[in-house]
Simulated scan of single mutants.
Amino acid sequence: MALRIKTDDEVLVISGKDKGKTGKVLRVDAENDRVFVEGLNIIKRHQKAQPGSTQLGGVIEREASIHVSNVALVDPKTKKPTRIGVEVRDGKRVRVAKRSGEVI
């Protein structure tokens, strides 16, 4: 199944510990139906220092993935969550916000 959410989309988290927060999609894992959202679902990883590397060890915070069903695209016109439709306009497939009809 092709995901309708793409990198750089503005999304709203609709369930989970970050419910109600918005952020930009950094990365999409289409194989597992998951997205990585900037500044949300932060996890801590305890990393050992690697010899010969400039990166030090310690506790590193980074974004974890969120299932695509737990995020909703933010409508560019109304700034509210919306579903996404696909239409053909001028011979090209475009994503359309269901709430306002605006091309995404």
Rank of each mutant, 00 (worst) to 15 (best):
N32F: 15
L73F: 07
G39H: 09
V86N: 08
V11Y: 04
I43E: 12
V59F: 11
K92V: 07
V68R: 03
R62C: 14
T22N: 06
L12P: 02
K98Q: 09
E10Q: 14
L73H: 03
P51C: 05
D9H: 07
A30G: 15
A97W: 02
L40M: 10
V25T: 09
A30P: 05
G23L: 11
E31K: 10
Q50E: 10
S69H: 15
K21A: 02
N32L: 12
L12S: 04
I14F: 03
Q55F: 11
R27L: 14
L56F: 13
K24A: 10
K44N: 13
R99I: 07
L12F: 05
I43K: 13
R34Q: 15
T82M: 07
L40A: 01
K80G: 05
R62D: 13
A64L: 03
D33P: 06
G85N: 08
I42F: 04
E63K: 10
E31F: 07
R62G: 13
R83W: 11
E61N: 05
K48C: 09
T82H: 02
P51Y: 08
L56N: 00
D8M: 00
R4V: 12
R89S: 04
E63V: 10
D8L: 05
V88N: 04
G52S: 11
D18R: 08
L40V: 02
I66A: 01
K79V: 04
D33M: 12
V96A: 00
R4C: 10
T54A: 12
G57L: 05
Q55W: 12
R45L: 12
K17D: 07
N70L: 11
I104W: 07
S69T: 15
I14R: 00
S65G: 12
K6N: 13
E102N: 01
E87V: 05
N41V: 06
I43P: 02
Q55V: 13
V103Y: 04
I104E: 01
E87N: 04
L73S: 05
A64R: 03
D90Q: 10
G91P: 03
V68N: 03
G20I: 01
G20N: 00
G52Q: 01
